[in-house]
Amino acid sequence: MRSQPTPEARHRRRLRTPVLVVTALAWAATLAVHLLPATSGHHLHGARQLHTMQHTNDMPGMPGMSGMLPGAGTGSPSNGSLSTGSLQMFLLGWPFMLTAMMAPLLVPVLRHVHARSLPSRRRRTLTLLVAAYVAVWTAGGLVLFGLAAAVRAGAGSGAVAIGSAIAAAALWQLSPLKQRCLNRHHVQPLIAAFGRPADRDALRFGGTHALWCLGSCWALMMVPLLFDRWHLAAMAVVTLYLWAESFDPPAPPAWCPRLPVTAVRVVSTVVKPG
């Protein structure tokens, strides 16, 4: 039976397709940012530092990424202070990392705002919403960066730091607060259509949506920040998990295991033979 797209499916596709293209480009850029310093001899301060760090850390297998990680490459995990170079590298890679991880999660919101705003203001409204979203996430990202540096400094070893972050993430995943954040993350509030109230609502919606998104994702996002060699792989795994859990509908908050059941079923249905 040939599947004809429904009108709703056509509308979904109109916005989802460009966002997925942007996401793919962001992943390519993220990869490039982490490969570039080591392969082309770019002379960014952070890149130079990174090159040195790779040698001192004796981690030749994964060039680039560890340079943007908090406290990485200092030679000793206990000396995990927030260096200027690593912060620069973090900020350089951050726009790509944020886009790569979060853009698909924004599709329902972008679709909602696109549909419910005046055609003459759509571009402005969407721009303000995304700007607020990025601003709040960037502030949150810097906090996460600092937190990761502190964990590194306090942990004594990379393995302990990663183990602690995984334990914290697991606890957060089980908590009712996580579910509350996920539920609020599904909210698509109404926005004003005209004038300053429309701008204000777009900024407010983008900001609050980013806050709930941050609340849902922060613990899991900490984990790849603590990986040196396997940072990109950890980031990919965490991203897939975050995308997967967004498929589940809101639920009453409670202490309970929270697995991305819907996404797992979808994938298993697609890949099963016949």
Binding site: M1, R2, S3, Q4, P5, T6, A9, T262, V264, R265, V266, V267, S268, T269, V270
Partner: peptide, 16 residues
């Protein structure tokens, strides 16, 4: 009525 596979198989067809 709709005729596509998405309709015919229902939510279970998408793992729901």
């Amino acid at each position: 009525n709709p005729t596509g596979a998405r309709w015919a198989a229902g939510p279970a067809g998408r793992g729901q």
